[in-house]
Design a protein around this nucleic acid. Sequence first.
DNA 1: TTGTACGCGTTATCAC
DNA 2: GTGATAACGCGTACAA
Lengths: 339, 339
Amino acid sequence: MATLKDIAKEAGVSIMTVSNVINGKHSKVSSQTITLIQELVKKYNYVPNLSARSLSQKSSKLIAVFINTYEAGQNHFKDPYISELFGELEALIRQSGYYAIIRSVETAENVSTILQNWNVDGAIFISQQTEDAMNIILKNSKCPIVFIDSYNKTNPKAITVGVDDYKGGYIATKYLIANGHQRIAFSGCYSENNAIVSQRYQGYRNALRESGILYNEQNLIQTFTRYEDGIHIGRDLANHRYDVTAVFAAADLLALGIIEGAKLNGCIVPNDLSVIGFDNLDLCSFVTPKLTTVSQDVKKKADSAVELLLDAMNQVEIPSQNITLDVQLEVRQSVQKIL
Amino acid sequence: MATLKDIAKEAGVSIMTVSNVINGKHSKVSSQTITLIQELVKKYNYVPNLSARSLSQKSSKLIAVFINTYEAGQNHFKDPYISELFGELEALIRQSGYYAIIRSVETAENVSTILQNWNVDGAIFISQQTEDAMNIILKNSKCPIVFIDSYNKTNPKAITVGVDDYKGGYIATKYLIANGHQRIAFSGCYSENNAIVSQRYQGYRNALRESGILYNEQNLIQTFTRYEDGIHIGRDLANHRYDVTAVFAAADLLALGIIEGAKLNGCIVPNDLSVIGFDNLDLCSFVTPKLTTVSQDVKKKADSAVELLLDAMNQVEIPSQNITLDVQLEVRQSVQKIL
DNA sequence: TTGTACGCGTTATCAC
DNA sequence: GTGATAACGCGTACAA
């Protein structure tokens, strides 16, 4: 509750002297008063009021982290990938001397309001945005914003961090093909608005084409990517609703659901069906069979995002505003060679 | 960027009139000026500066969510339980008209600094605190604080939300006993500072005693509760380092690790060993065998915490400051009857 | 080396 | 109904 004024009065100096001491501008103050004031600061447990500071400065030291609100009635933080990413971001924001405001939003309009409300210095989106949404957000916002897992080829203001989704789809499919599979399904939340999945799908398609395998439209399985959705698909697969020997699932949870659903109807992975996922969640190694999947480096993603954001906030020249991190195949037990 | 002043100038009225319109004090303003100002607000996209508001009001509309920093080098949000809880809290805070600041902290001192820095209205701790830490925090803080999963029997200021850990340990052990098990291990992060685990342990001990089973000190397995820790213990169990037929693990991840570790050394759950966990994470149903566990209602926990906090902030009379939610046994496949 | 005046955007108070 | 003034806590710019 103590303010600069209180300390100044007690010390018999002006407010500015106290302020200078606190902000480390020691060159402007005699060492005597410095120690005096430092004692008083401790004694009264002085803590600067950052709202006041934010008001009189350009900067608020606040970084906003945005996430989409519930999807399919689901708490977004139940997605282990999102949670881990968020945890890393929080740590990095704190270590950089900033404060993290977390907010789930429904529409692009809400974003700029929050940003202005708190005079936020920078923002990070941790769930995918459409290009349209990004453009609206960027147009209405003054501070730098980093978008994780979003694609935007047209807007030069867009700062993005993502992984090589195309390559992920490509190497996963290639691996299945190398193991003798020819009839391979793609399952995921495929739509025009979902650039991530579209990219993975493109990788899948190109891998097929390169190997001279004819693409069968029936093998695109449209679905949400929760575990429960996978169960349904797994059952369908076991019931031969699709004519395939392998499935590439665009998310680990979906893949795990598929494995379980197939099993429920007597189809055993990898013996009767091969499955590959995407993300490399910890729990891929907890299940049976352990899931072969495309792995990405979540920590590096968070590092890149915060680094890019801080650079933009400090107007540092950046080589590129769009970072694409590499992915690689994590071979485990859910794929089997066939003849 | 528009401020009250800008709007006032454009409308040819005073700042206060604009302020009154924005804050819905319509009784003090003529309907003409109301509509005029509302138009201008839209035109200039006016958004109130909450730092300024916080400065001139008692309240900041900010709620801080605290979590302990890394433990055992682990991002805390990799714990699915913590993540889900956090996601629910974020939603509730937002829906209540507040803004969430998230912060990981190492020591109790950091807490009051943040609280003062931002003039925070209320705070929630989502990871367990020792009674000492809680007392320090409460002593140094002015705003209401809710502690989730912490025990504090002595400090009347402490507002807490938890589950009936004792009962959890009790019913889990009783269930094992009912299935014919007599030699039962307890594994978890047992220590004097960890009240949660101590309670679960007490439940375990009492269940044994009630059934006339002699407690064997060797069967208390001290460990961290990560999956990897479970692996070690599972191996030990398979190698008959402990003379038991069943294990109660104080956390699901630990239980899953134990199952896997045992399997690696040829000991199959539930055939050769029965295991019960605690938390009922989603992934309990993803693994094989599906984990029998003690379940708690995370959503209800979040609801209770926010409700309690808001009541305290609004100085509403509360029947009890300490809520203990019920737990129940979720029977699945990891326990087998023995003779 | 230290102090003064002012402004940041908002609200409460009180007078008109 | 409406408006002037002070106050919230801090930092910048400048003066002493």
